[in-house]
Design a protein around this nucleic acid. Structure first.
Length: 687
RNA sequence: GCCCGGAUGGUGGAAUGGUAGACACGAAGGACUUAAAAUCCUUUGGCUUCACGGCUGUGCGGGUUCAAGUCCCGCUUCGGGUACCA
C-alpha cells in the first residue's frame, strides 16, 4: 500500500493506517469477520456528500480486520477505514501519526489506538503537536535530529532503500475562469460529442454575438444562448465559408449548457456559452497600453522593450489572489513565447488596507416581531439581525425609520432601555474601548440619555451591502468636500493597514484646509504679497518639500498630511502670505488635495492647470542649521539640553559638555567612565 | 496547522539604534459673542511634588549596546489569508 506524506520524519510514530471508504484496497483488506461492519460503514458514508463530510467533524470509522507492516520500523499496524481520508487526494490512504496530526489524534483517542510522541519534551495528553519543530525521539535513526533535518534524512533513507520515492505534489487552484453573463471575452471553444475543442487559429478573433436581451434564456442558459448564429460551422472549413448558412443554435443541440453535447461528424458545432471574467482582459491590458494602435501584434518588441513592465501595482487582497495570478501566468506564458521581454508583469505590489464597516445589530426575540434593546437582550432568547447603519445614530435606533425600512418590520414592537438602566456599577463612568469588547457582540457605550431608547449592538466587519453597513462618501463630500475626504483617507494611517471607517477626526483635516485658505484670504481680501521671504519661511517650505518628496517615494501619505499641517501651522504663526512660499506649497499639495490646489494656483495668478507645474525641488541650503541642541544624557537618560554651534568639533563638544555646571552637578563628584559624543546628535556620559 | 501582518496615551497614529508619543481627534480651561456656531490661546501618557524636579513608561521574558519602540533569541496575544490536502 502506498501512502503520501509530507512528514516522513514521523514514520516511527505511525500506529495505524486509514483508507478512504472509496479506496480500492478496502475490499482486499476487509476480513470476513469485519465484512458486515465495513459494509455498513461504507453504506452510511455513501449517503453523505463530500461537503457534508467536510463540514461534519464527528469521528467515524471501522476496522478492516487487516494489518500492515511499517517498512521503516517493521512494526505491525492495524488498517482502518474512515471518511476523514479523502479518496481524491494522494493515494486515498494515509499513515496515521496521532501524536503529531490533529485529525489522526482525534481518531486515535476515539478508538483507543496508540499514540507515540516523537518530539522531546512534548505533551500529547490533551492534543497533538502538529508544529514542525523540536528534537526527534522514539524514532530509530532519526533520534536527536531536528524536525527539519529528520524530514530530509527520512526522505534520503526511503529513497535509498527503495521503500518509496520523493515527489513534489502540486495543487491546482480552482480557476473559476468563466461567467454566465454576456459581457466578457467569449471562449474560442466548440463542443463535439460533448467534448471541448479549441477553434482553429484562423477563426480568431471570436467576437461576441448579437443577442436580443442580455438575460439568461428560458432554459436557464447564459445570455449567449440567445444568439442566433452562435455555432462553429466546421473545424475543417477556413474562415468565411459556411458562415452564411443560418442555423439556429437550438436546432443543433437541445441542451447546450452546462453540458453541451454537440454532434459528431463535420459540424456545425455549438460554441461555449459562458464568457471570460474581468481577469481575462485585464491580464494583458498593461501590454496593450504600451502599443495601443498596433493592429499587427499585441505589442511590438520596440514598444515593449521601451516600457518593459509596470512599476507599481496597487490593489486589494482580492486582486492579489485573483487578477495577479492570471496576469502573472499570462505574462510568463508570453515571456516563454518570446513576445514580452520581462518575466514578471509588475515590479512592485502594494495591497492597500481595507476600509472596514461598523455594523449595527437589532435583537429580535425568537418567534416574535418584538425587538429588545441591547442591554436587556440577555433576558430573552434573541436572534441578532443586521440593521442599516444609516437609520442608527450613536447606536441609537430611529424606530420610525426602522419600521419603514422593511415591510416585515412595519408592525414591530420594541422593548426599550429601562427608565433607569441597571448597568453594572462603574460602567457608566468609564470610557469604553474596543479592546474591551468581545468580538461578535458588543456592549454599547453607556451613553447618557439612553433611557427609553432602543440601543443597537455593533461590530467591525467587512463593508458590504448584505451587512447594511455601507456608508456613502457622498455625505462626507457634501459636508466637507472631496479634498477633505481624500486627505482624511490618507491621514487615517499607513496605506497597507485596514481599519474601520470612523469619521472622528475628519474635522482636523478640514480645519487644515481652512487654515491654508486663511493664508490667502482674510474674509474676502486677498492677502498675497510679492515680498521677499525670510530665512525662516524658506526653511519651513523646503523642509516640507523634502519630507513630501521622501514620503511620496515611500507611500507614506499619512505622514505627508501631517507635514502639510506642520507647514501651514508654521506659516500661520509667521503670518506668511507670500507668493514665493505659497506657490510651491500649492503645487506640492496638488496630488493630495487637487481641487483646492488648483483653485489656489489660479488665485496666485497662474493659468493652465497646477498638474502641469514643475514639482518643487528642495534646496538643502535653506535647511542648514547654525546651532544644534544637544541632549546631554547620563547613562542613556537625558537630563538637559545644551545648544552648541553646529560646526563645533567632537572634542570641543565633549569639553564644553564636561565643564558645564549642570554636568558637574549631575556627576556629583564622580568621575565619568566614558563619554560618547555623536556630532550633531547626542552626548552620553557613562558614570 | 501553515503563510503574512500587527501590539506605542482616552482614540487614529509618529519616531535613518540617539530627547518616545510628531500630527490630528477627543477632553479640560480661557478669549471673542447678547447667545451659539466659527475662530483663536493654554493644558493634556501615568505616578509624585506648592514648585524646580523626580520616578515610571512602547504586549511579556531574556540578550546585544554607551544608548533599544527600533537589532537578536524565546513567548503571549490580536487580525488577515488558507486548509479534513496527510
Amino acid at each position: 500500500m502506498t501512502v503520501f506524506t509530507t512528514r516522513a520524519d514521523t514514520i516511527y510514530g505511525v500506529t495505524f493506517m486509514v483508507l478512504a471508504p472509496e479506496s480500492d484496497y478496502v475490499k482486499a483488506c476487509t476480513t470476513p469477520e469485519q465484512a458486515a461492519a465495513v459494509e455498513a460503514y461504507i453504506a452510511t458514508t455513501k449517503k453523505r456528500t463530500e461537503r457534508e463530510r467536510i463540514a461534519d467533524r464527528r469521528v467515524t470509522g471501522v476496522f478492516s480486520g487487516s494489518y500492515a507492516i511499517n517498512p521503516v520500523s517493521g512494526t505491525e499496524i492495524p488498517v482502518w477505514i474512515s471518511d476523514y481520508v479523502l479518496a481524491g487526494y494522494g493515494t486515498g490512504a494515509i499513515m496515521a501519526v496521532p501524536a503529531h496530526d490533529s485529525r489522526d489524534y482525534a481518531f486515535a483517542k476515539h478508538f483507543g489506538l496508540d499514540i507515540i510522541p516523537l518530539i522531546e519534551g512534548c505533551d500529547v495528553s490533551e492534543q497533538s503537536l502538529d508544529a514542525k519543530e523540536g528534537i526527534m525521539m522514539n524514532s530509530g535513526f532519526l533520534n536527536g535530529l531536528t524536525v527539519k533535518e529528520a524530514i530530509a534524512a527520512a526522505k534520503k533513507h526511503i529513497s535509498e532503500k527503495g521503500i518509496g520515492r520523493v515527489k513534489v505534489n502540486y495543487r491546482l487552484r480552482d480557476a473559476i475562469f468563466s461567467r454566465q453573463r454576456y459581457w466578457g471575452e467569449p471562449f474560442p471553444v466548440y463542443y463535439k460529442e460533448g467534448l471541448p475543442y479549441m477553434l482553429d487559429e484562423s477563426r480568431l478573433p471570436l467576437e461576441l454575438p448579437e443577442v436580443d436581451k442580455f438575460l439568461p434564456t428560458e432554459k436557464g442558459e447564459p445570455p449567449l444562448g440567445r444568439a442566433k448564429n452562435w455555432y462553429y460551422p466546421s473545424p475543417t472549413l477556413p474562415k468565411g465559408e459556411g458562415e452564411s448558412s443560418k442555423i439556429d443554435l437550438q436546432d443543433i443541440s437541445e441542451s447546450q449548457s452546462p453540458s453541451p453535447s454537440g454532434r459528431a461528424g463535420e459540424g456545425p458545432f455549438p460554441l461555449e456559452l459562458n464568457t471570460m471574467p474581468g481577469f481575462a482582459g485585464s491580464s494583458a491590458y498593461y501590454l496593450r497600453y504600451m502599443d495601443p494602435k498596433n493592429d499587427k501584434a499585441l505589442v511590438s518588441p520596440e514598444a515593449n522593450g521601451y516600457w518593459r513592465n509596470v512599476d507599481l501595482y496597487i490593489g486589494g487582497t482580492e486582486h492579489a489572489t485573483g487578477h495577479l495570478i492570471y496576469s502573472r501566468f499570462w505574462n510568463k506564458f508570453l515571456f516563454d513565447l518570446g513576445i514580452v521581454c520581462e518575466e514578471e508583469p509588475f515590479k512592485k505590489l502594494i495591497n492597500q488596507g481595507m476600509i472596514q464597516g461598523r455594523s449595527n445589530f437589532v435583537y429580535r426575540i425568537k418567534d416574535t416581531n418584538t425587538f429588545v434593546s441591547l442591554n436587556l437582550k440577555n433576558q430573552y432568547e434573541t436572534t441578532q439581525i443586521h440593521c442599516d447603519v444609516n437609520i442608527v445614530s450613536n447606536d441609537v435606533l430611529d424606530i420610525e425609520k426602522f419600521k419603514a425600512w422593511r415591510p416585515e418590520f412595519a408592525d414591530a414592537q420594541f422593548i426599550l432601555e429601562y427608565p433607569n438602566p441597571t448597568l453594572p456599577k462603574g460602567e457608566g463612568d468609564t470610557q469604553y474601548s474596543k479592546s474591551e469588547q468581545s468580538q461578535d457582540e458588543t456592549i454599547s457605550p453607556p451613553l447618557e440619555g439612553t433611557k427609553g431608547r432602543y440601543i443597537c449592538g455593533w461590530a467591525v466587519e467587512k463593508m458590504s451591502k448584505s451587512m447594511y453597513n455601507v456608508v456613502n462618501p457622498d455625505d462626507i463630500v457634501e459636508k466637507y468636500g472631496a479634498d477633505t475626504l481624500r486627505l482624511y483617507e490618507m491621514f487615517l494611517g499607513p496605506l497597507e493597514q485596514s481599519k474601520p471607517w470612523d469619521t472622528n477626526g475628519i474635522d482636523g483635516v478640514h480645519r487644515f484646509l481652512k487654515k491654508l485658505w486663511s493664508l490667502f484670504y482674510k474674509e474676502t481680501n486677498l492677502l498675497i504679497s510679492n515680498d521677499a521671504s525670510s530665512a525662516e519661511e524658506l526653511k519651513t517650505l523646503h523642509k516640507t518639500i523634502k519630507k513630501i518628496t521622501f514620503d511620496i517615494e515611500n507611500f507614506s501619505f499619512n505622514t505627508s498630511v501631517s507635514a502639510f499641517m506642520i507647514c501651514v501651522n508654521e506659516l500661520f504663526t509667521l503670518k506668511c502670505s507670500k507668493k514665493e512660499i505659497l506657490e510651491p506649497l500649492v503645487i506640492l499639495l496638488a496630488p493630495f488635495a487637487p481641487h483646492i490646489a488648483e483653485e489656489l494656483y489660479h488665485i496666485l495668478g497662474n493659468h493652465g492647470t497646477v498638474c502641469d507645474a514643475a514639482f518643487p525641488i528642495c534646496n538643502e541650503s535653506y535647511l542648514v542649521e547654525s546651532s544644534v541642541k544637544y541632549p546631554i544624557s547620563f547613562n542613556g537618560k537625558v537630563r538637559f539640553m545644551l545648544e552648541l554651534p553646529a560646526d563645533m568639533p567632537k572634542e570641543e563638544v565633549e569639553k564644553t559638555a564636561m565643564t558645564n555646571e549642570q554636568t558637574i552637578k549631575q556627576l556629583a563628584g564622580a568621575t565619568p567612565k566614558k563619554v560618547i559624543v555623536v556630532p550633531g546628535k547626542i552626548v552620553n556620559i557613562v558614570c
